[in-house]
Design a protein around this nucleic acid. Structure first.
Lengths: 281, 281
DNA sequence: TAGTGGTCTAGACCACGTG
DNA sequence: ACGTGGTCTAGACCACTAT
């Protein structure tokens, strides 16, 4: 424990006050701690518990790269001393980050920054499954990778300014040698300088692992919109289908810290021997 | 609260031992408590923490109908006395059940058994969204409801015995007067005695709310498999489509307590102005 | 053996909803 | 004013991993 102001208290015979009883407020989870509540009358600053403020500070540290993907973060005790709160409070903050897959806890080993370099993360963002039940072993072939002006809707979803351009990637995923998913991907060119087809082809494993390792961009969440459509001619050709065949279109917007969108993806899924699996809880 | 044998203990002036220090084991979350660890050598009984045993006992009580859907369960303090554990342990058990949407907590009011009679639950099992963004206001029309022998695959998914029959429901969901989803539903006849088209038509609101109120069957989870298919003639007619149009087929198996499957559903989604929304975390 | 996360307890106080 | 869940703390011990 840090030899802090509080330590002095415990040297007196005082009843070891549990905590100082000050209500805490903060903007939407800013880093403020021990801020007294605003005068009664203003409403908006709304109550924010200590552990959420700690969570916000951990997120800020992660976003600023204090700990890289895959690295161990300090122990609960260490963080408790750093933030001047009890271990239990740090624990609750970490627990929320763990359920959001931002951190991963390992009993006896420590707490680590989640990474896409794992089997686990692999199928969190790929819901394709074989109808027979198993997980599909996919093989990726990069078709093209070029700088471009994205379609207006994609630019809006990526929140690009008018002048900004994107990098466009087209790739084909095959399962058991059979073309199954055609992905069309846009990412902001500014965030992925130097991304080209050679680097993509040199990489093996999930695309998000490459994004993470080479560009420091960690995908945390994605929102998907699914439709059944008649496959356009161009995409049908890559999938070896007749134009107009029914395909599953998966429209994805992926986000990193602060819900910042950093990837838009349109996936054309051939669902003859595969399906998109989803669990409703 | 049950005035059980254990109550006597708290009347003695004992130092209220934190806990007895006995390691707890149990089968896969059976109701066993305070069972000492098996001799070192056998491995399988695997450690089960107290709060999971409490969780299992709460689940058993729920399954046995001790508290009906929508009802308030005893307070944390009351449950702690009943189960002879600390409030914090009960709290952790309830927390898990709340994240699984089995229970719902309301600060200042109490903890309640989750129910499908709420706006909240409505769209947890219906992922249909308008392309324009809003939630669709759906209107349901029952097409038919009859007892039948289900297809072999459905019977297997419902774990029906050879002699058991099912009830088949076909209904059409419309959004803004336009047919949008055709649902074909099978449920075990044994669990839904008396379910007929009159009762279905008399009911307004989510189907699962009717299942819950009239038959005591609470849907807790569902697994869905999505495919894009060419719409068969019969279903196309109900949706007002040309045969062979691309439709989204949503294959669902719903389960209640103990992961017991109690409904199989095939939904044919017209995704021209709507889509299936999914969040990847 | 040392260090980490995991469990369990006890008690104080806060925020919320209802009388 | 009361009862409920929500937060925070402190401390003990258990389980797991690495050295």
């Amino acid at each position: 424990m840090s030899a802090s102001i509080h330590e002095a208290d415990s040297q007196t015979g005082l009843p070891q006050r549990p905590h100082d009883g000050l209500p805490r407020v903060a903007g939407p989870d800013s880093g403020e701690v021990f801020t007294p509540r605003a005068a009664p009358g203003d409403d908006l600053p709304t109550f924010s518990p200590l552990y959420r403020q700690i969570k916000a500070r951990l997120l800020r540290a992660l976003e600023e790269g204090e700990w890289k993907a895959g690295a161990m973060i300090p122990s609960e005790g260490g963080l408790a001393r750093r933030f001047m709160v009890s271990q239990g409070t740090v624990r609750k903050a970490i627990e929320e980050l763990a359920t959001e897959h931002v951190l991963v806890r390992h009993q006896g080993r420590g707490t680590f920054v989640a990474t896409h370099h794992e089997e686990r993360a692999q199928f969190r963002f790929l819901r394709l499954r074989k109808d027979t039940g198993g997980l599909p072993a996919t093989e990726s072939r990069i078709i093209e990778c070029r700088r471009c002006r994205p379609p207006a809707e994609v630019a809006r979803e990526l929140r690009l300014r008018a002048a900004e351009s994107a990098i466009f990637i087209r790739r084909l995923l095959s399962v058991d040698r059979a073309a199954t998913v055609l992905d069309e991907i846009w990412v902001p060119a500014g965030l992925f300088r130097g991304l080209n087809i050679e680097r993509l082809e040199a990489h093996h494993g999930p695309l998000y692992a490459l994004f993470e390792r080479n560009f420091g961009v960690t995908m945390l969440r994605a929102h998907e919109r699914l439709k059944a459509i008649a496959c356009p001619a161009e995409q049908a050709q890559w999938l070896g289908l007749a134009e107009g065949s029914a395909v599953l279109l998966v429209d994805r917007v992926s986000t990193t810290y602060n819900d910042q969108p950093v990837e838009v993806r349109k996936g054309y899924y051939l669902t003859r021997e595969h399906h998109y699996a989803n669990e409703l809880l």
